[in-house]
Design a protein around this nucleic acid. Structure first.
Length: 281
DNA sequence: AGATCTACCTGGTTGC
DNA sequence: TGCAACCAGGTAGATC
């Protein structure tokens, strides 16, 4: 469940281990872990230089250039986009480390190390993109604004008139990018908003408050290197610490830390949702 | 437009 | 003990 803070942590950890190296070979161990044009990844990526590793929404992006820094001529990938979905992980290992049971893709790097893409559940993917491919990638083109970059006014305007439930809107990557089940529930609890409230029934003042709280929660989670539940690890194989700050996520039936009432569990937008019926209205 | 359901996938947990 | 049922979760796609 890498969400924005986890992907940001992974990108920051991966950057010093991969930027400035070129890709010398690509090994596809599981075909379904490659989305888009497989030949562009397998035969186009070798020889390309990893210039920058960063994040957009929950996507981890590797910007590529030809080693001589000229614009890539013809059909070459200028980007690798990884979506980790639920169980995807990215690690850099020495060349002697063999693939694991769930290793789906390996990129050999020019410094002798290798980037492993492990993904037990096979939901994640790596997509190689040439310049012209971005225009045809619906997920990329409909991705909403970054929650840490959007201003308060724009955030309020984004939600104010929607009739959908506020948690569904927060989870909708076309509305705002990078929020998943954990940070939706944690933010709505801290903002005192019931997850099943229609957006247009939430006062403007509370939407303003949610904007600040959402940013604070995401920033704190990034400072703490994300949340580790089940199999999430950062690029160094380390667990994050934000799970120690969970107030509702995964705590259905436990007592609310604020009022002591039992936390309720419900399905909202198809996801398990935990909230306090007294503190969230 | 928005809600609901299913598919995708596998390991861990629960129930009998 | 053994095994079936269920669960978690992000996104796409179908259907109402």
């Amino acid at each position: 469940m890498p969400e924005l803070p986890e992907v940001e942590t992974i990108a920051r950890g991966l950057a010093p281990q991969t930027e400035g190296r070129s890709i010398t070979a690509v090994h596809v161990l599981n075909a379904t872990s490659v989305e888009g044009r497989r030949p562009l990844l397998e035969t186009g990526a070798p020889g390309m230089l990893i210039r920058r590793v960063h994040r957009r929404g929950k996507l981890l992006l590797m910007d590529l250039t030809a080693p001589d820094a000229t614009p890539p001529a013809g059909d070459l990938p200028v980007n690798l986009a990884f979506h980790l979905k639920m169980s995807g992980r990215l690690f850099v290992y020495g060349k002697e480390t063999p693939p694991e049971a769930h290793t789906r893709l390996i990129l050999d790097l020019s410094d002798g190390n290798r980037l492993f893409f492990d993904d037990m559940r096979k939901f994640g993917y790596c997509r190689a993109l040439a310049e012209q491919d971005f225009g045809e990638w619906a997920f990329w083109n409909t991705l909403g604004p970054e929650p840490l970059e959007i201003g308060e006014e724009d955030f309020v305007a984004l939600l104010r008139h929607r009739r959908t439930r506020i948690k569904a809107a927060l989870l909708d990557q076309t509305v705002i990018a990078g929020i998943g089940n954990i940070y939706a529930d944690e933010s709505l609890f801290r903002a005192g908003i019931r997850p099943d409230t229609a957006c247009n029934a939430v006062s403007e003042a509370r939407l303003r408050s949610l904007h600040g709280i959402l940013q604070a929660v995401l920033q704190q989670a990034i400072r703490e290197c994300g949340s580790s539940i089940r199999d999430y690890r950062d690029a160094h194989g380390d667990a994050g610490a934000f799970q120690n700050n969970f107030l509702v996520y995964g705590k259905g039936g436990e007592k609310c830390t604020v009022c002591g009432r039992k936390l309720a569990t419900a399905k909202v937008a198809g996801r398990t949702t935990v909230f306090c019926t007294k503190c969230q209205r």
